[in-house]
């Protein structure tokens, strides 16, 4: 708990820096406007105006916060197309877009983690797979496989597969490799002495897996899941760019098309909140699980 005050201070400092940056970033436009109108701006006027532009170069933090609030609660509660009035989520709300992104991320993450886990078991128990597949799994972490995303979306779209699944596939393969590499490490975490101990008890292969390898791999499993879900979210967002069927990626892209900076920033924050929530959720599960296993400190 010693770090609460420092973290708060740092966060406040970042906010202060942000506010401080808003003025010079947006000042030029205000000066141009004033020059065109033939008026002079006082410094106070300049500062207040830079904080409230409709399409600023850098929106002020409170503008982003207000936009986040408006495009979630206000839109759904009072909006003509909102949940309150129509019974369905408004296609202009971040709740709607965030939900689309979240679903694809979760589906892809589940697929990727399951397959990654299975391959890791194969690699640990099969020497040929270890020798042939493992180097590629490691190499895949060094290359920008996310570049495949637009192609996967478009090709699957052209054969009639669209919507959730293509994005989920990208999210899946992005979380797949971190899980493979992490789990191979984890399943190999037991040392020779522990494995020999199992042998002296004449434990079967399955028992050795369930009672030794699997429990010892748990810390690694959660660590790679955290990496995996963050990667999945990035994959989903990038996968949403080429075919615009909703999602936070689309909000980012349309925002940049129309110069709606406030919309970009609010979508960015929505994505950040989503990422933080998911990583945080895994962190909570990790803490509970490891605590029950007596592994947490």
């Amino acid at each position: 708990m010693k770090s609460v005050l420092p973290v708060l201070t740092v966060t406040l400092a970042i906010l202060a820096l942000w506010y401080a940056a808003v003025v010079p970033m947006n000042a030029q436009w205000e000066r141009d406007q004033a020059a065109r109108a033939g008026t002079e701006l006082t410094t106070a006027e300049l500062v207040t105006r830079t904080m409230s532009q409709s399409r600023p170069r850098l929106p002020a933090p409170h503008q982003v916060a207000v936009e986040l609030w408006n495009s979630t609660w206000v839109e759904e509660r009072h909006g003509r197309r909102g949940l309150w009035n129509t019974g369905t989520l408004s296609n202009r709300s971040l709740v709607h877009h965030g939900w689309i992104t979240l679903l694809a991320t979760f589906l892809g993450f589940a697929i990727g983690t399951t397959l990654g886990f299975a391959l890791a078991v194969g690699i640990v128990y099969n020497r040929a797979m270890d020798a042939s597949v493992m180097p590629w799994a490691i190499a895949s972490q060094t290359i920008p496989i996310i570049a495949l995303a637009p192609m996967i979306i478009v090709v699957l779209n052209s054969v009639g597969i669209s919507g959730l699944l293509p994005k989920a596939i990208i999210a899946a393969y992005l979380s797949f490799f971190p899980v493979v590499v992490g789990m191979v490490k984890g399943l190999r975490a037991p040392d020779a002495m522990q494995l020999d101990q199992m042998k002296t008890w004449n434990a079967s292969g399955l028992q050795g897996f369930l009672k030794l390898r699997l429990p010892s791999s748990m810390p690694y499993f959660f660590a790679s899941m955290k990496i995996g879900i963050a990667a999945s979210l990035v994959g989903t967002i990038v996968g949403e760019l080429p075919v615009q069927q909703g999602g936070l990626g689309v909000r980012l892209l349309t925002g940049s098309y129309y110069g709606q900076t406030v919309q970009i920033w609010s979508a960015l924050f929505a994505a950040a909140i989503l990422a933080a929530a998911m990583v945080g959720a895994i962190g909570v599960i990790q803490r509970l699980t490891l605590k029950r296993m007596g592994l947490s400190s």
Binding site: A230, L233, I237, L252, A267, A272, A276, V279
Partner: peptide
């Protein structure tokens, strides 16, 4: 851990 890539636009 955040999707910093979203700052691209």
């Amino acid at each position: 851990a955040l999707p910093i890539i979203g700052t691209a636009p």
